[in-house]
Design a protein around this nucleic acid. Structure first.
Length: 864
DNA sequence: GCAAGGTC
């Protein structure tokens, strides 16, 4: 009987590649939990029946049993000795059932999981699902491949080995250690601090061996900045006029920290007044073209040059990949495989208006062999696969695609070559110099112009020549602290210290943002919050190990012993867990040291009213008084700010109003159809724009705000032209039911919707979309704001699995077919009804509100 | 409500 061979890869794309290679493209594919490809071929000299399918990453993940899931009943200390259970990572995908079904009647299993430790671990997950280990006569093989190319796949097929149990056990060890350490510390910290302070703006005060050192880097830089003491320094710069050039010379001492000494040098140089040319040197220099592009480098460029965070950059890259524009975007390798088809990839780009000429030149004159780079044995570097234009991709994806193309072309271009001339001068025993640069070969900088070497020309000098000093300048300066870490620098630090992997680095950075430990500010610099700083300073005074990057390398080192078979899995886990348990007990005992820092920053729950958001005038937290009428009170300024009644109010991230610096709040009306909107406490009470002074949902019981003519401007009425929360930015189109404007509800994901800023009209947008945002463009047909919809990959209505769609809700056929309008029957909460109906029942033209709305419409027009 | 690691 012909042998039956089941092969399993780590992801669907690899299963497809393997099946295509081994079947020569002659396979039949069918859907299942993941695709299954079938064909006939040879196996170990016999003709065989093949089936290739895949998992989707890890099949299982670890957790504590149900008995340990209750936070209040479980002492976090007990978690260290608790059992752990494995359950399916994604139960809905039914991967385990899929593998077990596909394995039925098959006698051979070939494991094509990625060739790293995690892949080895997944091998054993697959074995467990297929039940192969239990039955006799069934054989399990491991394919070891260093790239997903025909040559490597065939080579692996002819050199099948056994899966490596030790490597898999090392991953089991890491999973158990990470789970126990992370969850115990997280639960303890969260319960302790959230139970004590009212204004902690994070639901969970998490700890983790990757996320905490990541935060540590950001806080370390912050502490460096705030403890920095600037020092004055001075520099001497003689100037010369030579053959028509005025040149500023650099001092070999660079700078001095003593003005008197600097002045002394200035005087003796001035007295002499003649510089002598003592050396002229000319060197040929070169600046290397880049090696192939890997994930981490793509993320760094995306953050520093394109302004995309790692999470967004990966989403964009993933989409470009599934749509066939770029190659697989998750790779560590910067070396191209020897078989890489450079000519073919170049040809794919040679009709692109953006690079046509450059590509044609490379094709005609012959491209340069790329630098060797690093081969991590995974996927080839990220390269373009087919030509695209901005219209096909949308703005953000285009920017990323454009970089991938430029980088690829850069790797095939010559190095930049330039000559560097250095002229050295002496006067009164002091040395000065000036430097000229002349580019001889522009090379890759023509396609990556931001990396170009700057030109600086110098006149001719001769050795021994004497030149008069025209004037001497003393430049004064201050030493400056470094700036906050850029995301790109953080990624480098994480990579260098082995924190996270190319796939998980974006997740850790995202974590510390979401938990409110850091904020991304201008230039994508990461500035820690009071919470982030308090946490790290707390660890530093209790047990600095807890926030140092070494904590990760310690764990890695221990599990590597398991992977190499030098230590027993259970002994290592036991040993490491014991150490962390001791650290945990000590941390609990010493928590008051960390608490002292929290006490200085946050306010106890027991004080009346909880602290909610910061006042824009004094930058202190204001108290939220929930008793009717609910309001905010700033104790420092002694001001009261009313807010809408009968709903829930919470901090809107830590976003602030560009007009007055007050922290924004999100108010949500009750019920499933209650709209949510941002508001600035100050603008709401004292609308800054003329005409908007009608109450919107506020209580009129006296205004304590001096300038207040009234109250009532939430962000959805605000005509601010550039603030991202204003009606100008969030408004989409005119309300079909009234004179209002339909505005995007910014926190309505995944049930995205528009609501009218005057009446009850609701418009439901495509549900489950990953992101919906307004753009600055307007529909040429109807003037509505163009919106951008990022559909969910699984439910996207677009062709070829595309997810990004840009269009007008009224005129775009697809969007129009997906939106549902609903005129809410339910009345608004009483205060709102009162105000809205006041307007609606009288002639709208006579109301202040209408006037305001006209202003807004005008503002909308002015914006265009 | 919690970690980190896969992949979607």
């Amino acid at each position: 009987m012909a042998p039956k061979v089941l092969m399993v890869a780590e992801k669907p794309s690899i299963a497809l590649s393997i099946a295509s290679v081994l079947s020569g493209g002659q396979m039949s594919s069918r859907r299942g939990s993941t695709e299954v490809h079938e064909f006939d071929g040879n196996f170990l000299g016999f003709s065989a029946q093949y089936k290739v399918t895949s998992v989707i990453g890890h099949v299982f993940s670890v957790d504590f049993p149900a008995a340990y899931q209750n936070w209040t009943d479980t002492d976090p200390l007990d978690l260290f000795d608790a059992p752990i259970v494995k359950s399916e990572s994604n139960p809905k995908a039914h991967i385990c059932r899929h593998l077990s079904q596909e394995a039925r009647g098959f006698g051979h299993l070939v494991l094509w999981l990625d060739c790293d430790r995690e892949g080895e671990n997944i091998c054993f997950e697959v074995i467990e699902c297929t039940g192969f280990h239990a039955k006799d006569g069934k054989r399990v093989y491991r394919a070891r491949f260093s790239s997903v190319t025909e040559k490597d796949i065939l080579k692996a097929m002819n050199n099948l080995v056994e899966p490596n149990k030790n490597e898999a056990l090392a991953v089991d060890a890491r999973q158990e250690i990470d789970l126990k350490v992370g969850v115990s510390f997280t639960r303890f910290q969260t319960s302790y601090f959230n139970g004590k302070y009212g204004n902690l703006d994070s639901r969970v005060i998490s700890y983790g061996p990757c996320q905490t050192p990541t935060l540590g880097f950001c806080v370390q830089r912050h502490l460096q900045i705030i403890t920095f003491k600037p020092e004055k320094f001075w520099k001497l710069h003689p100037y010369i006029l030579h053959k028509g050039y005025e040149l500023k010379l650099e001092w070999n001492r660079n700078r001095l920290f003593d003005l008197d000494v600097t002045e002394m040098f200035r005087n003796i140089i001035k007295e002499d007044g003649i510089l002598k040319v003592i050396a002229i040197s000319e060197k040929q220099e070169s600046k290397s073209r880049p090696a192939g592009l890997n994930t981490v480098n793509l993320l760094k460029v995306a953050s520093s040059a394109l302004g995309f965070g790692p999470q967004l950059a990966m989403q964009l890259a993933e989409r470009l990949y599934t749509q066939g524009f770029i190659s697989y975007p998750r790779t560590e390798s910067t070396a191209y495989p020897p078989s890489f088809d450079f000519r073919g990839t170049l040809r794919a780009l040679d009709n692109n208006p953006e690079w046509r000429e450059y590509v044609q030149e490379l094709l005609a004159d012959g491209y340069v062999k790329p630098r060797s780079g690093n081969d991590a044995g995974d996927h080839p570097p990220i390269t373009p696969m087919r030509s695209a234009t901005q219209d096909m991709l949308g703005h953000d994806a285009w920017k990323l695609y454009q970089y991938v193309c430029q980088h690829f072309l850069g790797t095939l271009s010559p190095d930049t070559k330039y000559t560097r001339v250095k002229i050295e001068f002496a006067v009164a025993g002091e040395l000065f110099q000036c430097i000229g640069q002349h580019v001889t070969v522009k090379g890759f900088a023509s396609i990556m112009p931001w990396l170009a070497v700057s030109e600086k020309s110098l006149p001719q000098f001769t050795q021994g020549e004497k030149i008069e000093i025209s004037r001497i300048e003393v430049d004064e300066g201050n030493t400056a602290p470094p700036d906050y870490l850029t995301e790109s620098e953080l990624i480098s630090l994480m990579e260098k210290n082995g924190i996270g992997t190319d796939a998980s680095i974006p997740v850790h950075i995202n974590n510390i943002c979401e938990r409110n430990y850091v904020q991304v500010q201008a230039g994508r610099r990461l500035v820690p919050t009071a919470l982030g700083v308090s946490l790290i300073r707390g660890y530093q005074c209790i047990d600095p190990d807890l926030c140092l990057p070494d904590i990760r390398s310690f764990i890695e080192h221990q599990i590597t012993l398991v992977a190499k078979g030098q230590a027993d899995h259970s002994l290592v886990v036991e040993h490491v867990i014991k150490q962390f348990k001791m650290k945990f007990s000590y941390f609990v005992k010493q928590i008051e040291n960390m608490d002292a820092l929290f006490e200085a920053e946050f306010s106890p729950l027991s004080d009346s009213g909880r602290f909610l958001s910061k006042c824009g005038k004094c930058l202190r937290y204001m108290r939220y008084i929930s008793t009717q009428p609910s309001r905010l009170y700033c104790g420092t300024c002694e001001e009261i700010y009313y807010i809408p009644q009968k709903g829930t109010i919470k901090l809107y991230k830590e976003l602030t109003c560009p007009l007055d610096n007050f922290e924004l709040l999100i108010f949500s009306m009750p019920g499933p159809e209650g709209k949510s909107f941002p508001l600035c406490p100050y603008c709401y009470n004292c609308p800054p724009f003329e005409g908007i002074d009608t109450l919107f949902g506020a209580t009129k019981t006296g205004s304590t705000v001096k300038s207040g003519k009234g109250a009532g401007m939430p962000c959805f009425l605000c005509p601010h032209p550039t603030c991202q929360h204003s009606m100008i930015s969030q408004g989409v189109c005119a309300c079909p039911e009234c004179n209002g404007t339909l505005v995007l509800d910014p926190v309505s994901a995944p049930k995205w919707r528009l609501y009218c800023n005057m009446c009850n009209c609701l418009v439901f947008l495509p549900e489950g979309a990953h992101r919906i945002s307004t753009t600055r463009d307007h529909c040429p047909e109807c003037d509505s704001t163009i919106i951008e919809v990022d559909f969910n990959k699984k439910t996207t209505p677009l062709k070829d699995g595309a997810t990004l769609h840009v269009g007008c809700v009224l005129c775009d056929e697809l969007l129009h077919s997906l939106v549902v309008m609903k005129y809410g029957r339910r009345p608004y909460p009483s205060t709102l009804v009162k105000n809205i109906s006041d307007i609606a029942l009288t002639d709208p033209k006579d109301t202040q509100y209408k006037f305001a709305n006209n202003n807004i419409k005008k503002a909308l027009k002015d914006k265009r």
